[in-house]
Amino acid sequence: MSHVNLHMSRRQLLRAALLVGGATVAGSTAVSCAPASRPAAGDQVTIGFVPIACSAPLLAAQGRDLFARHGVKVQLRKYSGWADLWTAYATGELDVAHMLSPMPIAADSGVTDAARPTELAFTQNTNGQALTLASAHHPHVQSVNDLRGMVLGIPFEYSVHALLLRDYLIAGGLDPVSDLELRLLRPADMVAQLSVEAIDGFIGPEPFLQRALKTGSGRIFELTRNMWDGHPCCSVAMAKDFRTRNPEQANAITAALAEGAAFVDNPEHISEAAPLLAQEKFLNQKPELIAPALAGTYLSWDDREITDPDYLSFGDKTSATAITWMAAQIARFGLGGETLRWEDASIRDAARSVLPADADTSLAPVTINGRSFDPNRPTLEDAS
């Protein structure tokens, strides 16, 4: 199947453009943890976030006063959905934000009206996501082909979830446009939609996978780690002009994030980290939903209780190979507009442009959904 046939329909593209362009999305009103006014450069820095477990390094850095220890004043502002956070960043209300890792690529490349020169300053987490299906589908669904005709929730078009799921479906022989529906949903709405049978499943983050298991509404069908082990998910992005104006603040923020990531990544800290992250101002979830996510404990599709220490990891270095793959998928699925094209040079340039100074710039092939991806030739289709 050529990349041209993988582009979304015009209706889906318009829907995506409306979303990322800041159109109102039902129920996605920003929840402010602080005044809405933008702090002056060199003073307090407001960082926006969406309350999912992937933001744990950011939340731990704030909750443990790590930003203050590094000499930077930070306030966090909570957004219940990606559309509002995206708009706040694009309009300059935020200079620093928790983002799904493909979002900085899209913003920096100018693929939508939300264009802004952006650096992917810190990778918060790798792995920790899953395709979760309604319990009614267990154990009957056994292959990708069994997903035909389903409605599956995705958190955002510019998410590793949406890009990886489309690639997974194609590798399994399904067309992600004509064979099923991918529906945009806030992460917080996914389990509720699953419970009322409005969707058949979703691909999303913790602690909503644990919530689906606890409520009995869903079962984990496929870990994204099985699609691509070590894939990045969320990041902290910075406007390039912010780093230029405030290099010391920028470095202090990433140093605090690294310490926050080390804290939540240590299994010895789960009993302390879970209640910290559970606070209303942060994830607003019960600690008993967060602790198993940090421990990597879950019920598999084949009814095994599993504890996997690599289920969710925090603080891995930003990878040029991973960023190149995400840039390639944005172009492949027609999300790159006229600026991020299905051309090797365009894709490589887009990836290089968002990389921080300390990123792993090595480019080595990686296996994703059973196929080899060569970041040096990102448009080359693997024949295996």
Rank of each mutant, 00 (worst) to 15 (best):
F314P: 01
P309W: 08
S178W: 09
E268T: 14
R304V: 13
G230L: 11
L169N: 09
R116Y: 10
S101V: 14
C33S: 09
L185R: 06
T318Q: 00
L133E: 10
L294T: 04
S300H: 08
S2F: 02
D302A: 05
L165M: 04
T215D: 09
F333K: 08
A291K: 03
Q44I: 11
M227A: 11
C233G: 10
D308F: 02
R69Y: 01
A41C: 07
E381S: 00
I253D: 08
F67R: 05
G315D: 01
A256F: 09
D316A: 11
A90Q: 13
P275S: 10
A262L: 15
I170M: 13
S362P: 10
E288T: 10
Q249R: 02
S135N: 06
A136M: 07
N127D: 15
A212T: 07
A212D: 14
G218A: 02
Q124S: 02
P57K: 14
E119D: 09
L277Q: 12
D360Q: 12
T367M: 10
P35I: 13
L163E: 08
A90T: 14
I253W: 00
A88C: 04
R341N: 13
D84Y: 02
A130I: 04
Y298A: 02
P356R: 07
N251T: 03
L59Q: 12
E157Y: 15
A239D: 14
G128W: 00
A295R: 15
H161C: 12
L283P: 03
A273M: 12
A295N: 07
R219T: 11
E157L: 13
G315M: 07
V236F: 03
A40Q: 15
D108H: 05
V196L: 00
P267C: 05
F202V: 12
R69W: 06
V144P: 01
L120M: 11
A252W: 14
A60Y: 08
A90V: 13
R166F: 01
S313D: 05
L257Y: 04
S109I: 04
L165A: 07
A359L: 12
